[in-house]
């Protein structure tokens, strides 16, 4: 079993952090994992993305070119990557930032107004984790809430322990949407 995630949007939306959380969770569950950020000029103002692979087998190339999970937080990213998703894959769309629907009919699309939800809940900046929570739910990986919390604890900065509760709240909002 291999899950290949592509997480894409604007720089500053916490895409790399969402990826880091997912990959850390995979590692804590004993899976083979890799995390690769884009670091090119597109980081400055354009699209940013990260490739995450969580697998039962050793990871070959860490570059995800055909994701089975795509999370997008801006329109250019959906335009760019929609056609790359494997048939039967899942696309998670921040519908408060992307107005259009997924065109493909051979994938599952999930629309979460994550940025709006985060803003309404006083969790501005945590739309990334709302979407991550939704992803875990739809992949059947949110059943063990303690494992989710333990993984989150590992990646939240020790300098900002207060962010742990906020991130956990955001994850649960995504799960329950």
């Amino acid at each position: 079993m291999t899950n290949e995630y592509l997480i894409a949007g604007f720089g500053g939306q916490g895409l790399l952090f969402a990826g880091k959380f997912l990959v850390n969770k995979g590692m804590m569950e004993g899976k083979e994992v890799s995390w690769l950020p884009s670091y090119g000029p597109e980081m400055r103002g354009g699209t940013a993305n990260c490739s995450v692979i969580i697998s039962d087998d050793p990871v070959g190339s860490p570059i995800v070119s055909k994701p089975n999970v795509l999370m997008v937080m801006n329109l250019p990213s959906l335009d760019k990557y929609e056609n790359d998703v494997k048939a039967g894959g899942k696309i998670f769309v921040d519908s408060s930032l992307i107005e259009r629907k997924v065109q493909r009919t051979d994938v599952e699309a999930f629309y979460v107004p994550a940025t709006q939800m985060a803003s309404d809940a006083g969790l501005t900046g945590l739309a990334n984790m709302i979407l991550a929570g939704k992803i875990l739910k739809e992949l059947g990986e949110f059943e063990d809430e303690e494992a989710v919390a333990a993984s989150l604890k590992k990646v939240v900065s020790v300098k900002h322990p207060e962010m742990y509760e906020k991130n956990l709240t955001a994850l649960k909002m995504g799960r329950d949407y």
Partner: peptide, 10 residues
């Protein structure tokens, strides 16, 4: 190379 430098693995 840039990939090896930037990627995270256990």
């Amino acid at each position: 190379d840039g990939t090896m430098g930037q990627m995270m693995e256990p």
